[in-house]
Amino acid sequence: MCRYAIYGPYKDIFACFGCRKSFKQTSTADLNPEQISKLNYKCPQCHEPMVNMGHDFKAPKQIDKNQWRKVKLLYDHGIAYHSCGCDGPGYRPTSMREVQDFLAIHNKTV
């Protein structure tokens, strides 16, 4: 059974690539359709729009620019950290060297 379905709405994790920070935000499961259409999560620091990285995202340290660059590259190619909670989001590259092969396997072009 899916962990996120059993234990109710988990907060979504959003990232700001400019500030290299992540923030938990209200889950859309807690809101009605009218409220969802008005959502626009902005970074509290720079006020730029943040992106939904999924429940399983664990942000790199803010000073680790290479890891943030890798996460952004994956996100730009449609790879985030969404899952139902059973097995996690699956394998994600741990370094920039692995990204090109990972994207090739997932039919994404670099």
Rank of each mutant, 00 (worst) to 15 (best):
C84P: 03
R97A: 10
D101A: 02
V99N: 00
G78Y: 05
W68Y: 11
L73E: 10
G88Y: 05
H55F: 13
Q67D: 12
V51T: 05
K65N: 15
D87W: 15
R92T: 06
M53Q: 03
M96N: 07
P60R: 12
I63V: 13
P93S: 08
E48M: 15
K42F: 03
K70Q: 08
L73R: 15
K65Q: 14
D64Y: 07
S95W: 09
I79A: 06
H47N: 10
Q67C: 07
T94V: 06
Q62R: 15
G90P: 01
M50L: 11
Y41D: 05
N52Y: 13
T94H: 14
F57S: 00
F57G: 01
L103E: 02
N52T: 03
P89R: 12
D101Q: 01
R97G: 01
K70I: 09
A80D: 10
S95P: 04
K61D: 12
Q67T: 11
K42G: 00
P60E: 02
H47Y: 12
P60W: 12
V51L: 07
F57Q: 02
D64A: 10
E48P: 03
Y81V: 02
Q100P: 00
S83E: 04
L103I: 03
I63D: 13
P49D: 04
Y75I: 06
L103W: 04
M96R: 09
N66D: 14
N66H: 14
R69F: 08
K61T: 13
H55M: 11
P60D: 02
G85Y: 12
Y41R: 10
K70W: 04
F57L: 05
D56A: 10
K65T: 14
S95F: 02
H82A: 06
R92F: 06
I105M: 08
L74F: 11
G90E: 03
V99F: 00
H47L: 12
D76M: 05
H82T: 05
G90R: 09
M96Q: 07
G78P: 00
Y81L: 10
C86R: 15
Y41I: 11
R97M: 08
S83P: 04
L73M: 09
D87H: 13
V99P: 01
S83L: 04
L103T: 02
W68P: 02
E48C: 05
N52Q: 09
N40H: 11
D101F: 00
A104H: 09
Y75N: 11
C86T: 12
G78C: 01
Y81T: 07
A80H: 14
G88R: 11
P93Y: 12
I63N: 12
H82E: 08
